[in-house]
């Protein structure tokens, strides 16, 4: 089977198949990002702070455009905090002012206190630009795979290896 790789055109075609699978997945992700106007339109819940609404491992779909109305109190939003690279999923509980300058306060449904503790040092509220999207849909539990993968990094290597092998060896 590997002898087929001697033909340069066939080798190029096989490599392309592999490349197109990866690139199509990436471009679909980017397409969704652009559509939802969010750098990360699908996120996985990592903590239990939003129980009982969301459990660890739930997959959330985000929408970051305000066509008809502004992001309002009661929506579950995902936001970034300066200096932290993991976005947080919490509910919007207070809003002062309107537009992009409105001061927003968030809180986890399952947390005792609001999020001021979680914000950066000296930061008492977040703004619209910190939010990367409001949750519009979710699928329970399927995101647990990514939690497993990030907690056991060697699984990633194994998975990539298997996928690569399958694509290279199979020509269907």
């Amino acid at each position: 089977m590997l002898s087929t790789l001697q033909n340069p055109r066939q080798a190029a075609a096989q490599l392309l198949n592999f490349g197109l699978i990866l690139s199509t997945a990436f471009m679909m992700w980017k397409g969704l990002s652009v559509l939802a106007d969010s750098p990360s339109p699908i996120v996985v819940v990592l903590s239990g702070s939003m129980e009982p609404a969301f459990q660890r491992g739930d997959l959330l779909f985000l929408w970051n455009r305000n066509f008809f109305e502004e992001t309002k109190v009661g929506e579950i939003v995902v936001y970034n905090v300066k200096g932290k690279d993991i976005p947080i999923v919490h509910r919007l509980v207070r809003k002062f002012g309107v537009g992009d300058d409105a001061k927003l306060l968030t809180k986890g449904d399952n947390n005792v206190a609001d999020d001021t503790e979680l914000y950066a040092r000296g930061q008492d509220y977040i703004e619209r630009k910190d939010i990367i999207g409001s949750v519009v849909a979710y699928i329970p539990f399927v995101g647990y795979v990514t939690i497993l993968l990030s907690e056991h990094p060697w699984l990633k290597t194994v998975m990539l290896g298997i996928m690569g092998l399958v694509v290279v060896l199979q020509r269907e």
Partner: peptide, 20 residues
Amino acid sequence: LTDTRLALGYSAFAICSATF
């Protein structure tokens, strides 16, 4: 035929790499 297919595929792939 093959060359056209390869050209199409690899241009798409190049665009994807640039985006990445």
